[in-house]
Amino acid sequence: MELSKRSLGWLRYLDRKAKTPDNWNKDGRPHPHWDDRSDPPMASWHRFDLVDSSYALGLMAHRTPAWTEPYVAILDELIQRHTGWWSAADWLTQFGPDPDRAAYPDAYRMFIPEQLWGSYDVPGWTANGIEPWGVQMDPIAADGMLFYKGFFLVLLGIRSMIDPDQKWNSPFEMIRDGANTFTWTHTEIAERLTEQWMAAPIGCHCENTKIWPY
């Protein structure tokens, strides 16, 4: 198998994008080439660009299995960003019910049961802090935020499928905001999610109170 000319061209683009320095800590800001605009209100967060970009890398690695170096290097850049505060910016800023519930655009009607329009948080509003769960600042340990830890596991998993070096099974810090600094490994995140699935076979919350069928 081979990489197509277009695949190589996109790989070169993603390599430059991923290796352009920026700062995903709370006092920084992701470079504007990371996509926080697509498919609001659920996916319009920078982390989705990181995770979605990994799919092509995994597929390309299967096309050049004796040259995985460029994919792993880019995946490490994506994963490192996913440990930063900005990767969980929704969870770390959207506390309680959405104050804009009554002012949602009509386009959100498809996401909200008709009888609850105006008194219901749109999917994408993470509602950290609502009862009975209370404020949970670690997006991995939290009861909700499945779509954070699940997609992060996809990203980590794709890397582990093409490089067996276990790099991300050494403890690494996430969020890194003073007291809100949390240490995890790839395996520990998977174990945490497994615990949650075992405790709630119907599924885990993405946004608090919302369970999705995938």
Binding site: M1, L3, S4, R6, S7, W10, Y13, L14, K17, P32, H33, W34, D35, R37, S38, D39, A43, F48, D49, D52, S53, Y55, A56, G58, L59, M60, A61, H62, R63, P65, T68, G157, I158, S160, M161, I162, P164
Partner: peptide, 29 residues
């Protein structure tokens, strides 16, 4: 800037082929 999430899926489609999406998660390379 090229829209990242949409470009990511298009790039995956460019690299895709029979059985490849399944093989990626089935077993390590």
């Amino acid at each position: 800037h090229p829209r990242g999430q949409f470009n990511a899926f298009l790039a995956a489609a460019e690299a895709a082929g029979p059985g490849m999406w399944t093989r990626l998660s089935e077993a390590p390379l």
